[in-house]
Computed example of a mutant assay.
Amino acid sequence: MAQTIVKVEGMSCNGCRGKVEKALQGIPGVTDVSVDLGTKEAIITGFASHAEYVKVIEDLGFTVID
């Protein structure tokens, strides 16, 4: 399985973390998601595209940092 780390700006609480995790887990091909508020990283396991991750995160109102 491929693992991707995406930096997400704007997350500040467990509610934010939960929204991002739930949205990313809804992408077909994603098998696991873990979000770390301290590092502001979403660690995604699966076979979806980076563009899909970015779209889902930005649709929630957060910013992806490349």
Rank of each mutant, 00 (worst) to 15 (best):
M1F: 15
M1L: 14
M1P: 12
A2W: 11
Q3C: 12
T4Q: 10
V6T: 04
V6D: 00
V6Q: 03
V6R: 00
K7R: 15
V8W: 01
V8G: 02
E9H: 13
M11A: 05
M11N: 05
S12G: 14
C13Y: 11
N14V: 07
G15V: 06
C16G: 07
R17D: 02
R17P: 03
R17C: 05
R17Q: 08
G18S: 11
G18E: 10
G18Y: 08
K19Q: 12
K19F: 09
K19C: 12
V20I: 10
V20H: 04
V20Y: 02
E21H: 09
E21W: 05
E21G: 04
K22Q: 08
A23Q: 08
L24M: 11
Q25A: 10
G26P: 09
G26Q: 12
I27C: 05
I27R: 03
P28R: 07
P28L: 10
G29P: 03
G29N: 06
V30R: 01
V30G: 02
T31A: 14
T31E: 13
T31K: 14
T31H: 15
D32R: 14
V33L: 13
V33Y: 08
V33D: 07
S34H: 15
S34P: 11
S34L: 13
S34A: 15
S34W: 12
V35T: 05
V35G: 00
D36V: 02
D36C: 04
D36R: 05
L37N: 07
G38T: 04
T39A: 03
E41M: 12
E41I: 10
A42W: 02
I43G: 13
I44Y: 07
I44D: 03
I44L: 10
T45A: 14
G46D: 03
G46A: 08
G46H: 06
F47T: 15
F47I: 15
A48F: 00
A48Q: 03
A48G: 03
S49V: 00
H50G: 10
A51Y: 04
A51Q: 09
A51P: 04
E52S: 08
E52L: 10
V54G: 01
V54W: 00
V54T: 06
V54F: 03
V56C: 06
D59T: 06
L60F: 01
L60N: 02
G61E: 00
F62E: 00
V64R: 06
V64D: 04
V64A: 03
I65Y: 14
I65E: 12
I65K: 14
D66F: 07
D66M: 09
D66Q: 11
D66N: 12
D66P: 13
D66V: 11
